[in-house]
Simulated assay, not measured.
Amino acid sequence: MRKLNLALLAGLTVLFATSCGTGDQPKDTAMKNTITIQEANQRVEDYAERARAAFPVSAELRLQSQFKDSPCDDPTDNGPKGRLVASRGYQVMGPSVDQFPQQFEAIQAWWGQNGFAVSTDSARGADRTVAAENKADGFTMSLRSNNVGQLYLNTSSPCVWRNGTPESAN
């Protein structure tokens, strides 16, 4: 159980580390309208469901974490406080550990066909994380394996305003 908790914690760390963008957003664009947090939640789920096509037909995405309106106060994106982020974490059930390398190749191919660009690819033993960002809308996804033979798919929105408009403009 301790290993599972550590694995989930590591996954959430990756999820939040990639959830609020790349840090290159100018301050003047941060006060612009965004999609709503409701739309962000729907898109997070849609991306995960669409990405499921990269895995074997028998694979199952089992929801492990769900954050529907977490604060997005990441100072590295130069944006204002008050925005929110939506994210989901799924354990990918089905593929065996010896199939993990093919799963990483498959998800990267899917990302490439769907507007995502790989931003991180790191490995330490059996632990590997590959993350990507959709340059058109700022959503991020990551695939992570761990040393206890688990595979996780994480999806996050960029920072958005609850109702799509900056709080100070309401």
Rank of each mutant, 00 (worst) to 15 (best):
N170C: 10
N134A: 07
Q66N: 09
P166C: 03
A48W: 00
E45P: 04
R50W: 11
G79W: 01
G94C: 05
D73Y: 06
R2Y: 13
K68A: 05
K32P: 05
G164P: 09
I37W: 00
F139I: 05
G125T: 05
V85Q: 08
R83Y: 00
R83L: 00
R2G: 13
E39T: 12
L15I: 10
A59F: 03
Q25M: 12
A17S: 14
G138T: 02
V57E: 14
Q38G: 09
S96E: 15
D24G: 10
P71V: 08
P56L: 10
A136T: 07
A123F: 06
P80H: 11
Q113V: 07
R43K: 14
F67K: 03
W161E: 00
Q99R: 14
K3F: 12
L6I: 06
L6K: 10
Q99S: 11
P95N: 08
R2F: 12
A53G: 09
G11N: 08
L84S: 02
L8A: 00
D77L: 01
C72V: 01
S119G: 14
K68Q: 11
R128L: 07
F139H: 03
N134Y: 01
I107Y: 04
P95V: 08
C72G: 03
A59T: 04
A126E: 13
R88S: 04
A54I: 05
T13I: 13
A17T: 14
K27H: 15
S168Y: 11
P71T: 04
R52N: 11
E105A: 15
S168H: 12
K32D: 14
G23C: 02
N146M: 01
S142H: 15
L8R: 00
L6W: 02
A48C: 01
K32W: 10
A136W: 05
Q38W: 03
A40R: 04
K68L: 11
E133R: 09
Y152V: 00
A106L: 06
G164Y: 05
E60H: 15
G82V: 01
V92G: 01
E105L: 15
W111N: 06
V14K: 08
D74I: 02
S58M: 06
W161Q: 02
D77I: 07
F116S: 02
L143Q: 03
D28H: 13
K3C: 10
R88I: 03
N5F: 14
G94I: 06
G112Y: 05
D69M: 08
G115V: 05
Q103D: 10
N147R: 09
D73H: 06
S96W: 08
T129G: 03
A136C: 01
S168R: 11
S119W: 05
E167Y: 12
Q91K: 00
N170D: 12
T140M: 05
L151H: 00
G21Y: 00
G94Q: 06
R2Q: 15
P75H: 05
